[in-house]
Design a protein around this nucleic acid. Structure first.
Lengths: 139, 139
DNA sequence: GTGATTGCAAATCTTTTGCACTAAA
DNA sequence: TTTAGTGCAAAAGATTTGCAATCAC
């Protein structure tokens, strides 16, 4: 059997189906870049470049649309630390970030390594969706 | 004496001088809007609108430049929660934020009401500049 | 087939920049 | 004066949108 080559693709494909997204050629290519391998933080522009470099024809507009669909489907998390661009994080589990002010790079901090204590109750009628901790570091 | 009318302006003026910024007509007008009264979170566009509404002629470019000068001078803090625009926070003391996902509004959480425990050491060669905690809430 | 998806180009939005003009010290 | 600051219009990014063509089911 061709497991080592085909299984990873099928997993990605199933993941799209499970999210209710048709596994089109473009979505598969992007999902493969995003979800095969390590957790990562990418910008739309960056992912677009990788897709082209990997011979997958995708337009930048589709990259943007796809990234947002993935976010809506819970496959990705969007992060904004500096104005300008958005980054998309393939790690959707509870975790936080180091932000390197000099380079603009993000690095995950596993959720269990940070404890946020004593957060005040949210205004009534609202509930806490998520708590983001960004540790800004510099040289 | 005309203290009740002139003192607040002088305080703002002194604050600009202390920061090494010439108290020009535009900077004074913006500083008055920002620092007279409650702490606030404003976008450049918003502040520009207020300035015009208050009969202070300022160009949007100058509003951007001025906001960044104020940030560099430590008079303001820049915040990016959602991609797109930046917000500027007149509260420069240690504190955190509620972010209302539905409306995009920010609300301060006094620093002493949040405790972040057990943050891992930053990678060597770097030091922690600041820790931002954003409590995202929704309806 | 039929509705979802894509590509492209144009539009939009936020922010920055170059440069001649104006104002503060 | 002299140098910093301003306005304007144009440029630069990042992201979104409209619509005809294409693809998955």
């Amino acid at each position: 059997m061709t497991a080592s080559a085909s299984r990873p693709l099928n997993i990605v494909l199933e993941r799209l189906r499970a999210a209710g997204l048709r596994p089109t050629r473009q979505r598969l290519a992007l999902a493969r870049l995003l979800f095969q391998g390590q957790d990562r933080h990418v910008s739309a522009e960056q992912l677009h470049g990788e897709a082209l470099a990997g011979n997958a024809r995708v337009s930048l507009a589709t990259v943007y649309n796809t990234l947002h669909q993935f976010v809506d489907a819970g496959l990705l998390r969007e992060i904004a630390v500096d104005g300008g661009r958005s980054y998309f994080d393939t790690n959707t589990s509870e975790h936080h970030h180091f932000f390197f002010e000099d380079t603009g790079r993000l690095e995950d901090i596993p959720g269990h390594l940070v404890a946020v204590a004593r957060v005040p109750d949210p205004p009534e009628g609202t509930s806490v969706r998520r708590i983001d901790v960004i540790v800004r570091v510099g040289e």
